[in-house]
Computed example of a mutant assay.
Amino acid sequence: MNQLGFALIVALLRAFSLLPYRWVARLGSGLGAAFYAFPSHRKHVVLVNLRLCFPAKTDRERDDLARDHFRHVARSYFERGIQWFGSARSLKNLIEIDSKIDLYDKNAPPTIFMGFHFVAIEVGCILYSTHLPAASLYTRMSNARLCDLAKRQRGRFGAEMIERSTSARKIVGLLRSGKPVMLAADMDHGVDNSVFVPFFGVPACTLTSVSRLARLGHARVVPFVTEVLPNYRGYKLTVFEPLDDFPSLSDADDARRMNAFLEGQILKCPEQYYWVHRRFKHRPPGAAGVY
């Protein structure tokens, strides 16, 4: 991406942050439906994922679900303007919070906030940092300019942005110092430090980092989900009770529990999970590729 293209993206995002949320969301949703009408690699990935995870659905049902997902994905990119450039007050006005724990407890034990890749995950992470110091893990993008922009804007309220490849020692140090760490471990990042466990009945390459970091940092693991509310009302951040007996003595068992928990949340709003990612990119030995 050249300098002009990057400047145009920043200008658009800043412009979106000044428009009413409903206008931006409707525009993104409409364009997402239009994009779905054309063949693309991402459309193929979404349909493969849905076929593997929801084999009981008809082709028509999966097609409708995929179209709704494209609407949400396109919306999420347009809404980055509000999420990355909006004020703390504007974000708070858009988000309902339902938390089973005290989010403002400065004496809380070491905590890993375990998120999942629903389309609104970013806004939940950003919101927390407007209240208390936190660290958030991110995966570096292929485009350096966009990566630096995302890192800067995600951390503008004080969140310490940490690249996912950072040594575990630094993350454990943050946990032991009392700073919560936000991360998501539901994507396929390769077979290193991962296990193959079921995800909707399909073996999925699943990171074991949550268990290992929680064990080393003596941290509780608190799941959270940020969903898009209907009728363009904004978002809802749900923070759950800490997982019982987590981590266990088995990283594989913990990964199974994580995936099972995620499945339950996906079934509540399946169109909002990030099916555009190749969740089954890596396959168990001897298994054929699916994409």
Rank of each mutant, 00 (worst) to 15 (best):
F38L: 13
G173Y: 11
N49Y: 07
R42A: 11
G217Y: 12
R67N: 08
P20M: 15
S165V: 14
H282T: 14
L8A: 08
P20N: 09
V195Q: 02
M161A: 13
R169N: 07
P285S: 10
P270C: 06
S17W: 12
S29H: 11
Y21P: 10
D192Y: 07
N143Y: 02
K92D: 14
T226A: 13
D59V: 08
F38V: 09
G124T: 05
D245Q: 08
D64G: 10
E163A: 04
R154M: 15
S165E: 09
L19T: 10
I121E: 04
G201Q: 06
A168P: 14
G178Y: 09
D244G: 04
L27H: 07
G178F: 04
A184V: 13
V24Y: 00
K281T: 15
H69L: 12
T111S: 08
G81Y: 08
A288K: 14
V119M: 15
L47D: 06
G201K: 06
C205H: 09
L19F: 01
A25V: 03
N231I: 10
L243A: 06
E163R: 04
N193M: 06
G155V: 00
A219E: 07
H277Y: 15
I162Y: 01
E227I: 12
F240W: 02
R212S: 11
P285A: 10
D63H: 14
S250L: 13
E79T: 03
R80T: 12
T206P: 02
H72T: 04
G124L: 10
M141I: 03
H218N: 08
T238K: 11
K106N: 11
L18E: 04
S209A: 11
L229S: 08
G5Q: 15
A88G: 09
L94Q: 03
F200E: 07
E271G: 05
Q265D: 07
D68K: 04
G190F: 10
I101A: 01
F85P: 05
G190N: 11
S136R: 00
A219K: 04
V210S: 03
S142Y: 13
K92A: 13
